[in-house]
Design a protein around this nucleic acid. Structure first.
Ligand SMILES: Nc1ncnc2c1ncn2[C@@H]1O[C@H](COP(=O)(O)OP(=O)(O)OP(=O)(O)O)[C@@H](O)[C@H]1O
Length: 674
DNA sequence: TCATATTATGTTTTT
DNA sequence: CATAATATGA
């Protein structure tokens, strides 16, 4: 029996109302996510089959966490002693992937489709732009991609395309982009959702099957869903109406990605019979932290006001440090973390450093390493931005599907094998003439004949490599993908090339190590069981969709968390350090142009409300940018904090150490010395 | 065709 | 300070 007694009355109402639409609208730390977790457990307890339950979270990490918590609440077996299945708890993208893996052939894609990551999307866009005769003025591929995404997803942000000339251009680029991806049998992140919607429209039987399967739907962080995701939720639940959404308008921080707060706030419009639950007690933070957060967010005009209170007591004041530069900042924060650990026995895992941009983690990482402090960096694109990782994934994608032109072109001459840019460009136009893939074009003898003898040999050798390497993937024999990948990496001379291309041997070794680590993971989905082709596809999907997956060894053990303010949403830490509180970083300078100051403030609000016990902030007078020290000014948001809750530390006044703390500290030092 | 040298250029957040 | 796009020489 799941015990709802540990919930407060409002929470209990929300968790116990299983039928019909429910909206939980509540501030940070009021237990929204916890309510969902209990609600799922309660449903299972009441005999609802787990397979009928769908809970959508914002990140894969959140999904895993919720799955674990639900598992702890419910028994392993049901009343008849049968093993209980698990409910579906995942992100929108994983859900759509599950659906598309079954149905995608109905939409004209082949079953072995791949998901393109951002760098591959950019590659496709760049190719298109270069073919569109470089007369265009603004051709920042990243900007185009972002616009395209907004355009595709529709909703409020797509209204900017109303003007006919803009719309025509957008439509043109979209068509080119889509046919490029389609020719590669690839989809992007947005397509996962959009294709699922198309499937539902064109194949009502598939929609009906999903509706029948997921008869109870829940969505966490609903304020950050976009128009397409909104449609998806409605398609699934407009009939049975068992839909529970959870969110906080003050924590909407993904507007730049097309998220619309109105999805949350207009819930009553779309489901008039909705039961609205408001939660007001914050179980996370001290009153000081909560008051500061409330004072900051009050400066946003367009919001639903909330009453939040906490019984955790006043707690310590917020500390605000001023540092000379970013290096000093990192050094002192690390010192502070170590002081907390040695003097107050606060383990590393109870402390987190929050920052606005991923770049900021670099300086912190070096400082942490210098002091031998273990840390855990969450998110951060850098890993998948590395050349060797991108190359390797392109190899895998090309071997999974040789008609994937974009992947093939990426690695065709890496390492150099006599197929220069010019040659590949020729192959590309040959493929366009023949209306086939580059791989298919290369196989044509007349295309081969049109090349010089040398190039022709290189082409044939490359084709031989592809076919030979692909053979073991589908010959029905069991295969270790790791061994397989190691072989082709050596045979092609890729590893050698990687080492040679880097002068600095340390960095070269690092690159090889990165690659080897990734290769190791190939067999993690079990070696002999399923067919290698499918395992390869699953591996690639996990890599693109679940890139924030934590390695077990990193997850285990005591470590400080380094995380951006965006990805910290939904998490909590006893001790939080917010660094880089400078004008231009938070709020980011770009937010002034884009008129998104409110969203920056919400971001600050999210960051503050992660803290349970203590909160430390800091800003620098100067910061290194592009190798140069540039002057900085404190963030205007700092002025919004109530002055009496903040203790300033500009480095001049050394605060006295209390006797107890001092003794603990020295005791700890002694222990270390022994 | 390939490898190295030079120069330009960059603002943020992520599934 | 980095990385990526371009130019040049072998
Ligand atoms: N009724 C309760 N009694 C005790 N602790 C609670 C209760 N409800 C929630 N908590 C605790 O409060 C903390 C915040 O809960 P949770 O993460 O679910 O809040 P949230 O509303 O989802 O927050 P956020 O919006 O910031 O993500 C958790 O540590 C949770 O265990």
């Amino acid at each position: 029996m799941v015990n709802l007694a540990s919930l407060n009355p409002q929470q209990r109402t929300a968790a116990a109302t299983l039928k019909g639409p429910v909206l939980i609208l509540a501030g940070a730390g009021t237990g929204k996510t916890r309510v969902i977790t209990f609600r799922i457990a309660h449903m299972i307890d009441r005999g609802i089959a787990p397979v009928n339950i769908l809970a959508v979270t914002f990140t894969n990490k959140a999904a895993r966490e919720m799955q674990q918590r639900v598992s702890k609440l419910i028994p392993k077996k049901d009343r008849n002693g049968e093993k209980l299945e698990r409910p579906t708890i995942c992100t929108f993208h994983s859900l759509c992937l599950k659906i598309l893996r079954v149905h995608i052939e109905k939409l004209g894609y082949k079953k072995n489709f791949v998901i393109y990551s951002e760098s591959e999307q950019l590659g496709a866009i760049k190719k298109i732009l270069s073919h569109m005769s470089a007369k265009g003025e603004k051709t920042d591929p990243a900007a185009i991609l972002s616009l395209l995404s907004k355009y595709k997803n529709g909703g409020e942000s797509a209204k900017a395309f109303a003007e006919p000339s803009v719309a025509a251009l957008a439509q043109h680029i979209r068509k080119k982009y889509e046919s490029a991806l389609r020719a590669c049998n690839a989809v992007d992140f947005d397509d996962l959702i959009l294709l699922t919607l198309r499937l539902f429209e064109e194949h009502p039987d598939a929609l009906q099957a999903c509706r029948d399967k997921y008869t109870y739907v829940m969505v966490d962080e609903y304020q950050d869903t976009n128009a397409a995701q909104f449609k998806l939720v409605h398609s699934l639940s407009s009939e049975h109406r068992n839909i529970c959404v959870v969110g906080d308008d003050d924590q909407s921080i993904y507007g730049w990605r097309g998220a619309e707060i109105s999805n949350l706030l207009d819930m009553e419009k779309h489901f008039p019979e909705v039961k609205v639950v408001k939660l007001e007690q914050n179980y996370r933070s001290t009153t000081t932290i909560l008051t500061a957060a409330n004072a900051v967010i009050k400066n946003n005009t367009q919001r639903r006001g909330k009453q939040l209170w906490s019984d955790k007591g006043q707690g310590k004041r917020i500390t605000l440090h001023t540092f000379e530069n970013d290096e000093e900042e990192s050094k002192h924060i690390v010192q502070q973390i170590e002081f907390m650990r040695l003097a107050s026995q606060v383990p590393w895992e109870d402390q987190a450093i929050l920052f606005r941009t991923n770049q900021q983690s670099r300086g912190l990482e070096t400082a942490l390493r210098q002091s031998n402090v273990r840390y855990h960096l969450i998110g951060g694109q850098s890993y998948f931005d590395r050349r060797e990782i991108k190359d390797f994934l392109a190899y895998l994608k090309m071997l999974l599907n040789p008609h994937d032109d974009i992947s093939l072109l990426r690695i065709a001459n890496v390492p150099a094998r006599g197929l220069s840019d010019v040659t590949m460009e020729r192959m590309l136009s040959a493929s366009q003439e023949r209306d086939c893939s580059v791989y298919a074009a290369m196989r044509h003898t007349d295309v081969q004949e049109s090349c010089l003898n040398r190039t022709k040999e290189s082409l044939i050798e490359f084709l031989r490599f592809i076919d030979e390497t692909r053979a073991p993937l589908s010959d029905g024999q069991s295969l270790s993908l790791k061994v397989w990948a190691e072989k082709f990496l050596t045979d092609t001379g890729y590893i050698e090339e990687l080492q040679r291309s880097e002068k600095n041997p340390d960095i070269a070794d690092n690159r090889v190590r990165n690659l080897k680590e990734l290769v190791e993971k190939l067999d993690e989905n079990g070696v002999p069981t399923t067919n290698p082709m499918e395992r390869l596809q699953t591996f690639l999907e996990d890599m693109t969709l679940d890139s924030d997956r934590e390695e077990d060894k990193d997850n285990k053990g005591d470590a400080v968390t380094l995380i951006t303010m965006h990805s910290c949403k939904g998490l909590e830490f006893p001790h939080v350090y917010i660094v880089g509180m400078e004008d231009g970083l938070l709020p980011h300078s770009r937010s002034k142009v884009e008129n998104t100051l409110d969203e920056e403030r919400r971001l600050f609000y999210v960051a503050i409300t992660r803290a349970m016990v203590t909160l430390t902030m800091s800003y620098c007078i100067g910061r290194k940018k592009y190798g140069q020290m540039l002057p900085c000014h404190p963030s205007p948001f700092l002025k919004e904090l109530p002055a009496d809750l903040v203790e300033l530390d500009d480095g001049k006044a050394k605060k006295p150490v209390t006797e107890e703390v001092g003794q603990n500290f020295f005791a700890a030092m002694k222990r270390l010395a022994d």
